[in-house]
Write a protein that binds this DNA or RNA. Structure first.
Lengths: 200, 200
DNA sequence: TAAATAAATTATACAGTGTTTATTTTTTTA
DNA sequence: TAAAAAAATAAACACTGTATAATTTATTTA
């Protein structure tokens, strides 16, 4: 076959991203390959590489979609109107909920073969930072010192992430959703209380 | 060629584990493959599979060696005699130091293609738990309530891990060793202070 | 409208991978 | 010494990402 023009470049792009995410959701990151994806959308590997350039970029595009949905979930929960500590807890809960609901896709965010070539694309980095900023904003409102807020944001972010990661990958003894939720609360409540009593 | 008997089964095993760790240390987990490993020790893939059975088990054996060394490092630092909070800080520092010094090998612990087949071997799980116990023990001495100590151990463990992971994989803005150290201290000090003031 | 050009898609090939099976060579045993 | 067992290799299978050549279609140009 040759040129078909049944789908525009952008259509192919979104078809691939959608189907790629389906594949990961169904069988995990290991079940994904460019050839299988191509077969599922009725094309050939070459077309995939025409559109995305490289395997890494294809994966980044698929994971980028997941990041967008995750950010949207968190943002919705933040808009519910909680304040202070409750707002941070809501954020962590939203993050954990998303990770549990879309476990395979969330895990895939961290299973991409790291470190081989150049770093991830800039637009992907931006998506990650946008997510991080969602946490930094309420913390800045909570802590007067800006440097302390920055440090707290990074500490909390990494810690929340660690709980999710170890929990969902089964590397933490009781990894039920409620157990993880308990750890999240434990972390946030005590860490913030520790900051509060820092002077005394 | 056929049977050579230049090396015993156990010798082959440790040769493979040693060389495998060298390969990962040199080029990261992506640079590792059973065929290359076999070539480097002067054998063929078949021999590797004779000894280890499967790729997953080979990787688990290599990573198991890393886990052992990590546990030894932490244990040495713990034996230095600090108490209470300082002991926990020493533990986190030892963990971070090891991860920084042996960055590729430490990262490889979490880059094994997860979730495809059955879970990791029991003996590997045991090594991980041994490491975790190193943290739980001093925490139990610090907190009177055993349940609270268990929860705190898991929370802290996952958080320390998260800081290391995000930091070393470059997903956290300033990921210098000292910045990570600062986050570790921030986490431990404030979390524990939060626990201390829980009643008031 | 017919021919030339450009673009999109496929087909093919390459060097890898983990894994399995058959073969060969060596050692041990009877 | 002959037979059995063990250890290692060689070869094949079905994959993978990637690159290049070939082919078909759409668009532009003459």
């Amino acid at each position: 076959m040759g040129r078909r023009s049944e789908h525009t470049h952008e259509e192919l792009r979104s078809m691939a991203i959608l189907t790629g995410n389906q594949m990961i959701a169904e069988g995990g990151f290991a079940a994904f390959s460019a050839r299988k994806l191509a077969r599922r959308i009725g094309y050939t590997v070459g077309t995939i590489y025409n559109v995305f350039g490289t395997h890494e970029c294809l994966i980044a595009s698929i994971n980028g979609q997941t990041l967008d949905e995750l950010a949207q979930c968190v943002q919705q929960r933040l808009a519910a109107g909680a304040e202070g500590l409750a707002q941070l807890q809501a954020l962590a809960t939203a993050y954990l909920d998303f990770a549990c609901t879309h476990q395979q896709r969330w895990s895939a965010l961290f299973e991409a073969p790291r470190g081989s070539k150049a770093d991830v694309p800039d637009w992907y980095r931006a998506k990650r930072e946008a997510l991080f900023d969602l946490l930094e904003a309420p913390l800045s409102r909570l802590l007067s010192n800006p440097d302390a807020a920055k440090l707290a944001a990074r500490t909390l972010w990494a810690s929340i992430h660690g709980i999710c990661l170890l929990g969902l990958s089964g590397r933490l003894a009781p990894s039920s959703s409620s157990a993880l939720q308990e750890m999240m609360d434990d972390l946030i409540v005590n860490y913030l209380r520790g900051l509060e009593y820092a002077g005394s």
